[in-house]
Structures are given as C-alpha cells and as structure tokens.
Amino acid sequence: MLDGILLEKAGVPSASIITDVFELTGRAMAEQWGLPYYKFLMMSHPIANLTETQLDQRAREIAPEIVKLLLQGQG
C-alpha cells in the first residue's frame, strides 16, 4: 500500500491491492501520507494460504480492475 502511494507521489501510476480486512487501515494510511482520496483495490482475506490455482483465479478476477485503475489514474 505504502509503495503504491509513494510511486503515485513520484508520478508513477500505481494499483495497490489489499485484502478487505485492511480497508480502514488503507484509508488511514493514505490520509497519513497526504493522499486522502487515493484509490486502491481490494480482494477478500486471506491470500497467503491459497493454492496456486486459487491464486491464479484471484489474479484473473482482479486483472481488469488493475488495468482500469492504471488507465484511469487517481484523478
């Protein structure tokens, strides 16, 4: 999340992905780092113990959202 915020501040388009249990934390972090309206993506928690197949499925599902956010930008 912080990497994405710092990239965006440096002018590099970013797409941060967090799991849903960190939504409030992500918003608070964005506010703390001076980008209160920073847009980020979410998926359901957890991901660390997913199988490779499940992880591939998650990636396929969220890929269009990543493309959309990167093309749309934070503006």
Partner: peptide, 10 residues
C-alpha cells in the same frame, strides 16, 4: 503519529 490500535496499528 496516528498509530491507533485497530486503525493504523493492526
């Protein structure tokens, strides 16, 4: 620093 438990301090 804003590290409130449950918000930034997770």
């Amino acid at each position: 620093c804003g590290s409130l438990p449950g918000l930034l301090d997770r």
